[in-house]
Design a protein around this nucleic acid. Structure first.
Lengths: 225, 225
DNA sequence: CGTATCAACTGACCGATAGTCATTCATTGA
DNA sequence: TCAATGAATGACTATCGGTCAGTTGATACG
């Protein structure tokens, strides 16, 4: 049945059109201020139709979010697939994250939605699962690289790679969130340049994870960039 | 005029009654699911009256939040006003924060509201300022202690105390947020115990901020707790 | 063809809820 | 006693997420 298949394709396309319209509106307004009527208008469909494709506003938001996660994963994959030494590749991850932050700020902002479980109420389990799967892939990428570092003897062995990954990721994410929100506050009230702090934290963290030998070999110039 | 004063007092009292009612409801429901009607009922007032005392729902939320910040500052002050060496006092800060997280979870959850500037839209500048002031006091407490550590020669001198404070605070906060939200996810998907990681991160961070001499003197048993 | 079927789509409608404001009520002070 | 003040009220409005009975148009079939 060619017709069946065409319908499938068309349906998938519709889903994507809605997704693009939603992305446009969410990027402009954020979750709270975006309205389903507005998204419907952007998609040139009626509001009711949106609900044939996505369970709720939050579900649609998560669908856009997943695209952001895919983008980030692509950038991470590229940053770590060089032929540099492992320590350098780990550094690349830090800069890749910072690059993602600069070039896909809207996606980055959406990520923090995930940390507010208060807003997960209206989200379908399928969409939550899609997020979890994509999330998992990103973690795997980072953890594998750190694991490589441990096996090569450049990273300390008393922490497991997943622990290291979580520490690094969470800390750097948290700084970026503040750069986005409160950069001026930190500058004015504490005279701290968060951009600078991001680099320093990356270095400091990496240094504290490296073995003595690796530190000598790679002569990590902390705060030297 | 005694009457004038009495009215002032009564008005202040009303304000507080509303605040208490709001706290109760916000603790139970969170910002999104709490309704002004519900808060009004809890305060035994009509909804309209709430708006005579607070500009918006978000404003009221921030007012409760400030109370939480005061509570945290109290715990921090207590933790750092011992006669122990500075390094120990810094450690105390980390455990105090963790204690606050355990004993005032609802307040802690509210803190992350502050990181969503999307929700700052409806907040009065007065209330934002009240938050900033209280926030400032907490930072000062931490920064002063770290500064003491630097002057005593137990902390490295190539980072300023505000930078150290921001690194520590942001990283530890970020881990606690995840403990609150996604603790099981991290356990199941990455086999990482975030509680454990919090302690390890505290230690690792402190170690990386200490001078060689201090590390020897205080023999920081990293991951030894 | 004509007609039955069906899925995609629509948009008027509903319920919930933040915020407003004309009115009521109580206190005060002359 | 009563006008003036201002605190409190709650019915009302506007907005918005989500629903569903009805419409449309393409397809399948007799």
């Amino acid at each position: 049945m060619g017709i069946q298949e065409r319908k499938e394709r068309e349906k998938e396309q519709r889903r994507e059109e809605i997704l693009n319209a939603a992305q446009k509106v969410f990027f402009e307004k954020g979750l709270q201020l975006a309205t389903m009527d507005e998204i419907a208008e952007a998609a040139e469909l009626s509001k009711g139709t949106l609900y044939l494709y996505y369970k709720s506003k939050e579900d649609l938001y998560l669908a856009v979010l997943v695209q952001g996660m895919e983008t980030l994963r692509g950038m991470f994959a590229k940053a770590t697939s060089t032929d540099q030494p492992t320590v350098e590749r780990i550094k690349n991850l830090g800069t890749a994250y910072s690059d993602f932050f600069d070039s896909h700020r809207h996606y980055f902002r959406m990520f923090s939605f995930f940390e507010h479980p208060e807003f997960h109420k209206q989200v379908s389990s399928e969409m939550l699962n899609a997020c979890a799967v994509e999330n998992q892939k990103i973690w795997k990428l980072v953890v594998d690289l750190l694991d490589k570092g441990i096996r090569e003897g450049v990273l300390r062995t008393d922490l497991d790679p997943a622990e290291m990954a979580v520490m690094l990721w969470i800390s750097l994410s948290a700084i970026l969130v503040r750069i986005d929100n409160q950069c001026d506050d930190f500058k004015n009230r504490l005279n701290v340049d968060l951009r600078d702090l991001y680099r320093k934290s990356s270095d400091l963290f990496l240094e504290s994870l490296m073995t003595q030998e690796a530190k000598q070999k790679f002569g990590l110039a902390v705060f030297g960039r």
